[in-house]
Design a protein around this nucleic acid. Structure first.
Lengths: 117, 117
DNA sequence: TGGACGTGCTAAATATACCAAGCACCCGCT
DNA sequence: AGCGGGTGCTTGGTATATTTAGCACGTCCA
């Protein structure tokens, strides 16, 4: 496996970890692996096994599928990635006002143009 | 990982291989792994890495996703509560800064702490 | 008969995924 | 100053994934 891919996967995991505001040790504990190993994965030193990937995905609140796709482990380019707008609209923890707020923020970020689909 | 799962995965692969009318060696060559290794995987002796699984899936003309699911590596019923967060984090139309902004807005709406486990 | 081919499997060696211990650093206390 | 607790990283070892060589059994064909 190209270590370029591993690097990309590592960067992705690190980015997601930071977005989730977790430390390496927190993630390691949640994913039930050692902390150095997370560090090593993030730096692209190792090719984690399938169930370690799954555990990391779970710990980060990312669907394993998204992780696999990022890791280049699902070539099938079906299965549309989760949509922000849709997810916001469907979230029952948000009030209607809050949804509108988030949607308008989102649209201001992404511009007026319609999303791909 | 329960070796029961490995056995089930192995049986599944073997079944698919036979349906595809391939020998172990043919599959091994197509998946670019050694032939004994295929044999060992089919008998549930080892836990193949994610990209070996993908290669086998490709060689057999099976969607990797189906394979992962068979292997119990896609939980599917995990992590639904974090859909919005995931969608935001994975959106490639947003910059990291924008993601952080939206996440903090979202968190302020839904409450401060939302640990994963 | 015999050997050139197929099949799946075994065994021993190598490569590498993964872990425990611990270092170096930074910070908020007291 | 010095502790206690946080951060990410390094090192050396063990466990295990993966391979190379080769066995034992079949079948077909000369």
């Amino acid at each position: 496996m190209a270590d370029e891919r591993l690097k990309k996967l590592g960067d992705f995991i690190q980015g997601q970890r930071k977005l989730a505001e977790m430390s390496i040790r927190q993630l390691a504990k949640a994913a039930e692996v050692s902390n150095p190993y997370i560090s090593q994965i993030e730096r692209g030193l190792y090719k984690p096994s399938a169930d370690v990937l799954r555990a990391i995905g779970n710990a980060l609140g990312i669907s394993s599928e998204a992780l696999y796709r990022q890791a280049g482990l699902l070539d099938e380019d079906e299965a549309p990635p989760t949509r922000v707008e849709e997810a916001i609209r469907l979230d029952d923890r948000l009030t209607t006002d809050q949804k509108e707020t988030m949607l308008s923020v989102y649209r201001s970020f992404t511009g007026p143009s319609r999303p791909i689909g």
